[in-house]
Amino acid sequence: MASMPFSFAVLLDRPDIWRGDSLSRAGAPTIPCGFPGLDAELPGRGWPAGALTEILPAHEGIGELRLLGPALAGLSKRGLRLVWIAPPHLPYAPALAAAGIDVANLVIVRTASPKETLWAAEQALASNACGAVLAWPQGAKYAELRRLQIAAEGGRAPAFLFRVPEAASESSPAPLRIALGTSDGGLAVRVLKRRGAPLAQPILLPPMPPAVRGKNHHVDRHPAAPAAARDFSARLVHA
């Protein structure tokens, strides 16, 4: 019998073999997140489809949605639905449209309790009929998140769970966990958990402030009212 030219390199090239010291390249599809610096550090170079991604912002308003903007815009342009389950505020369509997201593909789901939120998220993930599922579960337990992860597996939708920063200390079945903070006005992305070697340094994304536009007034004044008498702009310049 001829000796088999068996080489480890061949074996290691298989996409379903994952070496502990490298990022997983396993066949699971991903959606590019649109920030090259972050994509490079994510297994499969993007947000995992068919898996949970936990996002733990230090607090509201630091760019936690803008981080998802390019990925969501791409999905919605392909006609896929973005399902928002129990968002904390009204997702404001004009801003989402400005970020390139097709508003026609947005679906808001309101729930009356954290239990309903988990139920709705599980249904949405298990259905495999959504482009992306964003959910704001409150006080979810490991077993409940495990159910969501199982529902998501094999599906095409990335599932983003927004959780409080304190959740970082709890264990979670989500294969990707990301904590968000700020640094010099920019967004500091700390990858708490990924398939592959842990990442010690946070990834700094450039500041994403809203474009500062020139004065962009929308004044529909009553034709009868004398314009000058109601012009406050002089007063507010130094406000």
């Binding site: 309101r110 729930t111 949405a124 298990a126 259905s127 009929a129």
Partner: peptide, 25 residues
């Protein structure tokens, strides 16, 4: 992977449990 599900079915299930107004665009 999983076959793509029917979007209409998902919406109907969510509405049946959460109420017709709970799912909107």
């Amino acid at each position: 992977g999983k076959p793509p599900g029917q979007w209409e079915h998902l919406v109907e299930r969510l509405r049946a449990r959460l109420g017709a107004d709970a799912v909107y665009g």
